[in-house]
């Protein structure tokens, strides 16, 4: 009985593996095919002769380096700034006493149900007023602090023993010094996780950059890719090369740091 069950389970798991991986593998394979090869019947799985033409074209003719630079710069800036601000706030909500602390925190959690699209229209008008539409700041500013990040840090910081912080206070350390040289190192695992979440979220983000970046030279990779599709929809192989380049950095990052990532999802799903 167990043997039959085991066989069925493995069969289903391998079917799942094929269904999940095939689209991604085909994307990579098609990106190396000669022009037109991905549009044949029956469909080809492998290029007849692998070529880098489409990758070269993307960088030389289609400005992909610029988009990749924009994406990398914005995702890095959002990650660094938000990590700093969220960790300060998350730590304070967990370990420092001040009037209204728990009420403010509850209000923040309740605000998580508000879809971000509600804010986009006024935010656009505000940034336009400030002259920040079509600038890096326009993308960076709304990403500098976020509620989920504060929540994640707080949950983790709750486990830091008060005695440790008090000991540092008795030794005369300032509150900022305690945060910087004691709390941050203790929170390192969750900081790595949050950094990963934030970087990937910013890298993959589409709707806000699409709205606030109006000039071609400011586009991030996803916006550029959607835009490229308009003109090059028939260049399947070229579009696949662009897609591969867009997902490559985040996929590599995930594969290297997947433990932190998976643990973060589990932490985020635990109720307080």
């Amino acid at each position: 009985m167990d043997r039959v069950v085991r066989l069925v389970i493995y069969a289903l798991l391998f079917l799942g593996l094929v269904v999940t991986a095939t689209p991604l593998l085909w994307m990579v394979s098609a990106s190396f095919m000669g022009s037109g090869e991905a549009s044949t019947y029956p469909p080809r799985l492998l290029p007849s002769a692998a070529t880098l033409d489409h990758y070269v074209a993307l960088f030389s003719r289609l400005n992909l380096g610029r988009y990749a630079f924009n994406s990398a710069l914005l995702a890095t800036a959002i990650t660094l700034v938000s990590l700093f601000l969220n960790s300060m706030a998350g730590y304070a909500f967990a370990k420092l006493r001040f009037t209204g602390r728990d009420r403010i925190f509850k209000a923040l959690l309740a605000a998580l149900v508000i879809p971000v699209q509600v804010t986009m229209l006024p935010l656009f008008l505000m940034l336009k007023q400030m002259g920040l539409v079509n600038t890096y700041w326009g993308v960076l500013i709304p990403g500098m602090a976020n509620i989920f990040g504060i929540f994640l840090i707080r949950q983790y910081a709750l486990s830091i023993p008060d005695s440790l912080l008090d000991a540092a206070r008795i030794d005369g350390a300032s509150e900022f010094r305690i945060y910087w040289s004691l709390v941050l190192p203790l929170c390192k695992p969750i900081l790595v996780t949050l950094a990963l979440f934030t970087f990937m979220g910013a890298w993959n983000d589409f709707m806000w950059p699409l709205i606030v970046l109006t000039d071609d030279s400011m586009y991030t990779l996803p916006v550029a890719l959607a835009n490229l599709l308009g003109e090059h929809v028939l260049d399947t192989e070229l579009m696949m090369a662009g897609s591969v380049l867009t997902i490559l950095p985040v996929t590599m990052l995930f594969i290297v740091l997947q433990r932190s990532y998976v643990e973060g999802i589990m932490m985020g799903s635990l109720k307080d």
Partner: peptide, 18 residues
């Protein structure tokens, strides 16, 4: 199984078109 989650939505939507 998790890989598609971390990929860029726009890029995989382009791929699924094909």
């Amino acid at each position: 199984y998790f890989l598609p989650v971390v990929t860029t939505l726009v890029a995989v939507a382009v791929m699924w078109r094909y």
